[in-house]
Design a protein around this nucleic acid. Structure first.
Lengths: 208, 208
DNA sequence: GGATACTAATCAATCGTTTGATTAATTTTG
DNA sequence: CAAAATTAATCAAACGATTGATTAGTATCC
């Protein structure tokens, strides 16, 4: 008699993602995943083959559709600056909606090991960077932007957002931000968006 | 007759740091550390009490003197902008001189566990941020800087540099940067310094 | 009834740590 | 100074616990 038809496979994925985010890949045991998900340990290998299989599946799920949002922006018939502002907004929204996951992504990316995932994340990021590069480069070519180091500007945009979610709330001593608190998250999101939009506007369009 | 009196304690520290940087804390075994350092496994606990003890010792060693460099800058009798530029230069130099270590620091910092180290890193960063905050805030107060979101500007400076070292060379498709190649490292260091100095100059002093 | 979903028990391997013994170096003593 | 006592450094071996993975068997479903 099956009282609840909750998908064990999905339960494992969700539990694993939660634990990987909290304690890292190496720091999470298959037994923890099984316990957290309510599934038997053998189900992990039954569905995903191995612990790494779970990790890969999680990453694939997240990376899927990673670029679709940006694609739409780029096809808009708006100015380069407006496009860039939309990109910043989109990026901040996406990353701040899943801070734990992005922290994990960065963490595992910074390891030399697991080349398969490394390449996957690399490709996903690379595509997005090319897109932003195109937007800024277009702006420079048509004269609406100053000549700048495009790749460094991108590093600044991405780096700032990443820094906000990785550097702990306590590193922001001016206020006790808690990214797990929806209210605080909203505030900090709007603040980082406003900052980056303002920064890029001034830097890219200021008269010499 | 002792032919070589290489300090085993130091050898363990160096081997452990190298391995922690490469494969992370959890991913590194005490047996690996022993093998790499040429010391017996028991020496790890003999000198440092535990694996975590080794980690703490490494962090302490690095964090020591972390702020002395910035302290000197702040006491200089130069303009706020010049101070900020010196900070950027100092930061880029420091971090790019030890990219692997800073990657590890960020990685372990993004984990919820190991609260002792978490607090230690937090404090070290917090101190540096306060210092930069003071420099920018002074500039705003004396009217030489525009009114900006100071904490976000700091996040931008730190985030950009961190992004450069964490985002893999392949994410920079425009060129095959290799941070392990001294020549490439020099180029990218000067580039990020120039970018951030230029960015802050324009953003903080541009006329509205 | 055969495929699918699931479980408890168990596997070998590895983990961080500890042990008891041995050697090297230093200090104390007569 | 040299013998004895003490301390520090090092080692191989083993500890119990935990790791990811697998087995063989049981329930459930169409």
């Amino acid at each position: 008699m099956k009282t609840e038809k909750i998908d064990k496979k999905q339960a494992i994925l969700e539990a694993a993602e939660k634990l990987f985010c909290e304690t890292g890949y190496e720091g999470t045991s298959t037994r923890q995943i099984a316990k957290e998900s309510g599934a038997n340990m053998a189900m992990i290998n039954y569905y995903f083959g191995s612990k790494e299989g779970v990790f890969v599946e999680i990453m694939n799920g997240r990376i899927a559709g990673f670029a679709s949002q940006l694609k739409i922006i780029n096809e808009d018939k708006i100015s380069s600056l407006e496009k860039l502002h939309k990109v910043i907004e989109g990026y901040a929204n996406r990353i701040l909606a899943n801070t734990a996951f992005h922290k994990m992504m960065h963490r595992e990316l910074s390891l030399t090991q697991r080349p398969e995932m490394y390449d996957k994340i690399k490709d996903a990021m690379s595509f997005n960077m090319q897109l932003i590069d195109r937007i800024i480069s277009d702006g420079i070519e048509d004269g609406s932007f100053n000549k700048v180091d495009v790749r460094m500007v991108i590093a600044t945009i991405m780096g700032t957002i990443t820094n906000i979610i990785i550097a702990p709330n306590k590193v922001m001593p001016c206020s006790n931000f808690d990214l797990n608190n929806p209210k605080d998250k909203k505030i900090i999101k709007e603040r980082v968006i406003a900052h980056l939009q303002n920064l890029t506007t001034v830097y890219l369009t200021a008269k010499k």
